[in-house]
Amino acid sequence: MGLLNAVVQGVLLGGLYALYAAGLSLMFGVMRIVNLAHGDLGVVAAYVALVLVTHTFLPVWAAVVVTVLLSAVAGYLLQRLLLQRSLSSGPLATLLVTFGLSVILQNVLQELFSADTRSLDTGTFATAAIHLGEISVSYLGLLGLGLALATIVGVQLYLSRTATGRMMRAASDDPEVATLVGADARHVYAVATSIALASVALAGMVFAMRSSFSPTIGSMSLIFAFEAVVIGGLGSLWGTLLGGLGLGLAQSIVGYYDPADSILAGHLLFLAVLALRPQGILAARGT
């Protein structure tokens, strides 16, 4: 029974990882950018929500909505003002810029909020759960999984049904021809980054509700999101969902036997996928 519970918890955890990974996957798919500040931007969102809840009269859900909207705007501006320029400054530039941004964000948060751990208090919701025998399914876990599914389905529909979404896929295939059919690549890219930041803001806030957070946990989130994307196979959001679930399951099941090895198990799954199925990874890189 304990093992079954570990599986259920792994699925819930995997949902959160998939939510983290969706934006990373989208940005890589459309612009070939690996945003190393991805996890840190989720942490920033968590702090923004925390400030909104403690210093305004907004209830938590409203703070979450406001933060997601702010993140979307921030994403648009980030792409237009910084990342777009770095795309034309050589192959290493985006990597260096986003890595620099990551270090900046972590240290600014540390200066502003100290290194102490915080949490986003959701009252009784935080502990509420559905109990099925020995298995407990927390509302927060379900929320993370549900948001991951909704985000991935939503982004998938956006990519296939709307003109801008279609243009994102087109630009991913051939950016120059995308401009030849009338797309302003800067705008299309900025919309993609905007979506990525909105989704990682959600992930960061759900994480902050589930467990305590501090300025530097963004690196770990980035690594997990990255592992989910690679395990699931590049270029597909459904793959990213599966990758997130796989990572969550590996961590949770191994953690059931020895909690100290849980994170290592996730890394080893990632390395195993790397060793056994590298062709998918290499293929997506070539343009």
Binding site: L95, F226, L271
Partner: peptide
């Protein structure tokens, strides 16, 4: 087995 930006994060995991 990883290229470019993916090499970067992959080495971090290692």
């Amino acid at each position: 087995r990883l290229r470019g930006d993916y090499f970067a994060v992959g080495t971090w995991v290692i």
